[in-house]
């Protein structure tokens, strides 16, 4: 178990490094020079050259990447090109907004998805099962930004029940401002999770240990809970772990649409301004979180399933 975790951590670091390297390469392909962006269109070529030098942009690409990693090791993610503030500070200011959004989306969609999937499996081939199947597949195929636009339109513009913009002030207002964005991001996941829980429940239900539990006259609810559901949620946990990446990309759109602060909004702004240090810093942190989420979900599976604990 310990060895496995260590192995996974090393792998995670490698993944993060590869991701950051690829991103640096991509930024160089994108047209637009950061130095020009900072100095404006009327800067002299000498000034641009000096700024590029100061930012390290004149060095060969591999050197730039290596420098970036060396700085990371010192806890330095660079500075905002315009304000000179530390990137790490800016990123960690925005991160909580996105983390809360994603966590709430995961929590509500997992709760609803597991309940819906379990219900469908227990009442399979009834009209409610069919309906939940149709609704699930429907919501899965709607992108989060479309969901966001329509939920703003319906609940904020037409009905006026919920705020459309910002993250709110204070705790209660914050929660109210979370509802629509978390709904928009999570709704597809209700479908995903319901489908996977339903399928794995139907499989687990045919396993001999369930028949054995029946043979001892255990109450149906207990059989469902500790003999079927306890095993059937495992694939959903893995799905959520790998799905955190999708949640982040959905959060980018949703934060922009709802004008919410967060990593997504930060990233979009920084890309538009060619504010490379912020882009790199935000992507680095996001990648770390995504990789960490997969690791955590694997550990949760191992915690719930003693067979996995042995294997790994």
């Amino acid at each position: 178990m310990l060895f496995y975790t260590a192995q996974r951590l090393v792998l995670s670091v490698v993944i993060v490094m590869v991701a950051v390297s690829i991103l640096t390469l991509m930024l160089h392909v994108v047209p637009g020079d950061p130095a020009v962006m900072i100095l404006g269109p009327r800067a002299t070529p000498e000034l641009i050259e000096r700024t590029r030098e100061a930012m390290g942009l004149d060095r060969p690409l591999p050197v730039q990447i290596l420098m970036f990693f060396a700085n990371i090791l010192r806890g330095d993610l660079g500075e905002d090109v315009f304000t000179g503030r530390a990137v790490s500070q800016i990123v960690f200011e925005q991160l909580p907004y996105t983390m809360i959004l994603i966590s709430v989306a995961i929590l509500w969609s997992a709760a609803c998805g597991i309940a819906l999937g379990a219900y469908s499996a227990l009442r399979r081939n009834t009209w409610l099962d069919t309906l939940s199947g149709v609704v699930s597949v429907g919501t899965i195929s709607i992108p989060a930004f479309v969901m966001a636009l329509y939920s703003v339109l319906i609940f904020a513009v037409w009905l006026g029940w919920l705020p459309a913009i910002g993250a709110g002030d204070g705790f209660l207002d914050g929660i109210v401002h979370l509802i629509l964005p978390a709904f928009a991001i999570g709704v597809a996941w209700v479908g995903y999770i319901a489908r996977i829980v339903r399928a794995s429940m139907l499989e687990v239900m045919t396993q001999p240990h369930v028949r054995m539990a029946r043979a001892f006259g255990l109450p149906d609810r207990r059989i469902t809970r500790s003999h079927i559901l306890k095993i059937a949620v495992l694939p959903a946990v893995t799905l959520i772990g790998t799905g955190v990446a999708h949640l982040f990309s959905a959060a980018v759109f949703v934060e922009v649409i709802f004008a919410r602060p967060g990593i997504g909004a930060l990233l979009v702004g920084a890309v538009n301004e060619r504010n490379y240090p912020i882009v790199l810093g935000a992507v680095l942190i996001t990648t770390c979180i995504i990789v960490l989420a997969t690791l955590i979900s694997d550990l949760v599976v191992a915690l719930l399933d003693p067979r996995q604990r042995e294997d790994i």
Binding site: H209, M212, A215, I231, D305
Partner: peptide
């Protein structure tokens, strides 16, 4: 009742 396959008759996660 006792079942045929003891490998699968018990709940694997309990």
């Amino acid at each position: 009742m006792i079942f045929q396959d003891p490998m699968t008759a018990l709940n694997p996660v309990t």
